[in-house]
């Protein structure tokens, strides 16, 4: 079937199988930042923005994005760069495999709530698993970023 999706500001027409998942579609279109960690919508690694809202692309048919805007980390490099440096300073990137999903959801958090409390950060990102960092370093990084911005 024919679909049309605006992926990172580029409108793409494509012919897909009806059961094609959004994660596979965006990876086929070069967005390798989008990772599959679990297949059961438990890990948050495959998070992309659909019309600006975070969704799990492993649990969404590509056809549902027909006519919509999809953004991956490839399309949000500048917005991400600002705060990920603070994650890097903590060494909390670690293996990096969960980073894109975590970054996408953090971008979304900060757009919705530019000055979250620690508990709001934990709650918003609770669907983003990380097995390496123990989460505390990610929290410190986000906190340091917010502090630097609020100076």
């Amino acid at each position: 079937m024919e679909i049309q999706i605006t992926l990172n500001n580029r409108t793409i027409k494509s012919n897909i199988e009806p059961d094609c998942l959004l994660i596979d579609w965006v990876r086929e279109h070069g967005c390798y930042s989008v990772k599959r960690g679990c297949e059961t919508s438990n890990c948050g690694l495959c998070t992309v923005l659909l019309d600006g809202k975070p969704v799990l692309s492993c649990s969404m048919l590509a056809v549902r994005a027909n006519g919509h805007n999809v953004q991956t980390l490839e399309g949000l490099q500048e917005e991400a760069k600002d705060f990920v440096e603070f994650i890097a300073d903590q060494g909390a990137d670690q293996c990096g495999f969960c980073n894109p999903g975590f970054v996408m959801n953090t971008i979304s958090l900060l757009r919705e709530n530019p000055n979250p409390t620690d508990d709001e950060i934990r709650a918003y990102l609770s669907g983003n698993l990380c097995r390496c960092s123990g989460y505390e370093g990610q929290l410190r990084g986000i906190r340091n970023y917010l502090n630097s911005k609020n100076k």
């Binding site: 930042s33 490099q77 990920v84 994650i87």
Partner: peptide, 20 residues
């Protein structure tokens, strides 16, 4: 406490793993 040499590549989602 230096940053990891691959930090920015990883945090910005660059293709660096087997399947990428």
């Amino acid at each position: 406490a230096y940053r990891k040499k691959d930090s920015m590549q990883l945090l910005l989602g660059k293709p660096v793993y087997v399947d990428d």
